[in-house]
Computed example of a mutant assay.
Amino acid sequence: MLETRNLTIRFGGHVAVDHVSCAFAPGTLTAIVGPNGAGKTTYFNLISGQLPASEGQVLLDGMDITRLPAPLRTRRGLGRAFQLTQLFPQLSVLENVRLAVQARHGGGLNLWQVWLDRKDWIEESREILATVRLLDRHDATAASLPHGDQRKLEVALLMALEPRVYMFDEPTAGMSVDEVPVVLDLIRALKARKDCTILLVEHKMDVVRELADRIIVLHNGALVADGDPATVIASDIVQQAYLGGVAAEVGLEASA
């Protein structure tokens, strides 16, 4: 469904992502790991269109989308959640989701479109909020939500867009121990559907081990390992990349 070919970006003389070629199949969850500065978020930014590639290609269903801006990639089926939550802070929780539903149905982002004309959009939005356990907060502004609920609302926005590729950049970052399971359950449910591709940047290795079908490892912008979780974590190249040969598990848990 999704593929990068020799994907590269340079900032001056620094190569942040270095000729990364990787394909991601439908129905799979791939975890992208690596030490700080490895290029994980930058790789995400290249795929989703937040940064222009210096070289290489991004393909979705075989179509080259490398030069498309981020909004058009979203319309083609790429859904992205960020490390820092991206919401409409002064709108209500329900209005945030309703706008995403409206955009998916081709209604644009006109906040003042008469809601009563499309009660089906409202009902769909409420069903999504119930799924992420935010229906009881539907009238609250997004800005008033605690951090964990804002992360859940961002997942709700992604679900409302119904992308074919879900990209989660550290979805549990900053969440309390009690809040983490809700987001992980949502990702687990998406994976169980088998009709979408999921990419996950995550530094918590217990999460990676549980959810990932596959791990790819970036180091200094390059792809250095790719395979099933047990094999990748045990590989010599991964252990050497993390803390100079200290056990991979220790290094991976310390990475971001």
Results as ranks from 00 to 15, higher is better:
Leu2Ser: 06
Leu2His: 10
Glu3Gln: 13
Thr4Pro: 00
Asn6Gly: 14
Thr8Tyr: 03
Thr8Gly: 02
Gly12Pro: 02
Gly12Trp: 00
His14Asp: 06
His14Cys: 06
His14Asn: 10
Ala16Ile: 04
Ala16Ser: 09
Asp18Cys: 08
Val20Met: 07
Ala23Asn: 13
Pro26Arg: 04
Pro26Leu: 06
Thr28Trp: 05
Thr30Gln: 06
Ala31Asp: 13
Asn36Ser: 10
Gly37Arg: 09
Gly39Lys: 02
Thr41His: 12
Phe44Thr: 08
Asn45Arg: 13
Leu46Met: 00
Leu46Ser: 11
Gln50Glu: 13
Gln50Met: 11
Pro52Arg: 13
Ser54Glu: 02
Ser54His: 07
Glu55Trp: 07
Val58Cys: 00
Asp61Val: 05
Met63Ser: 13
Asp64Leu: 08
Asp64Asn: 12
Thr66Asn: 13
Pro71Gln: 09
Arg73Ala: 00
Arg76Ala: 15
Gly77Glu: 01
Leu78Trp: 09
Gly79His: 04
Gln86Glu: 15
Leu87Phe: 02
Pro89Arg: 03
Leu91Asp: 11
Leu94Trp: 03
Glu95Trp: 03
Val97Asn: 09
Gln102Gly: 10
Gln102Arg: 07
Arg104His: 00
Gly106Thr: 01
Gly107Glu: 07
Gly107Tyr: 03
Asn110Gln: 12
Leu111Ser: 09
Leu111Pro: 05
Val114Gly: 08
Trp115Tyr: 05
Asp117Phe: 13
Lys119Asp: 07
Ile122Pro: 07
Glu123Leu: 09
Glu124Phe: 10
Glu124Thr: 13
Glu127Phe: 11
Ala130Arg: 15
Thr131Pro: 08
Leu135His: 14
Arg137Cys: 12
Arg137Thr: 08
Asp139Arg: 15
Asp139Val: 05
Ala142Thr: 04
Ala142Leu: 11
Ala143Cys: 06
Ser144Gln: 15
Leu145Gly: 09
Leu145Lys: 04
Pro146Gly: 02
Asp149Asn: 14
Leu153Glu: 04
Glu154Val: 06
Val155Gln: 04
Leu158Met: 10
Met159Lys: 10
Ala160Cys: 04
Ala160Pro: 05
Val165His: 07
Tyr166Phe: 14
Glu170Tyr: 09
Glu170Val: 08
Pro171Gln: 02
Pro171Glu: 02
Thr172Trp: 01
Ala173Gln: 14
Met175Tyr: 10
Val177Met: 10
Val177His: 14
Glu179Tyr: 11
Val180Ser: 08
Pro181Lys: 01
Val182His: 15
Leu184Gln: 02
Leu186Cys: 01
Arg188Val: 05
Leu190Lys: 09
Lys191Arg: 15
Lys191Gly: 02
Asp195Gly: 07
Cys196Asp: 06
Thr197Ile: 02
Leu200His: 12
Glu202Arg: 13
Glu202Asn: 04
Glu210Thr: 06
Asp213Val: 05
Arg214Gln: 03
Leu218Ser: 02
His219Asp: 15
Val224Pro: 07
Val224Asn: 03
Ala225Met: 03
Asp226Val: 00
Asp226Pro: 01
Pro229Arg: 00
Ala230Asp: 15
Ser235Phe: 00
Ile237Tyr: 03
Ile237His: 02
Val238Leu: 02
Ala241Lys: 07
Ala241Thr: 01
Leu243Cys: 05
Gly245Pro: 12
Gly245Met: 04
Val246Met: 15
Val246Trp: 10
Val246Arg: 15
Ala247Tyr: 07
Glu249Ile: 09
Glu249Ser: 11
Ala254Met: 14
Ala256Leu: 15
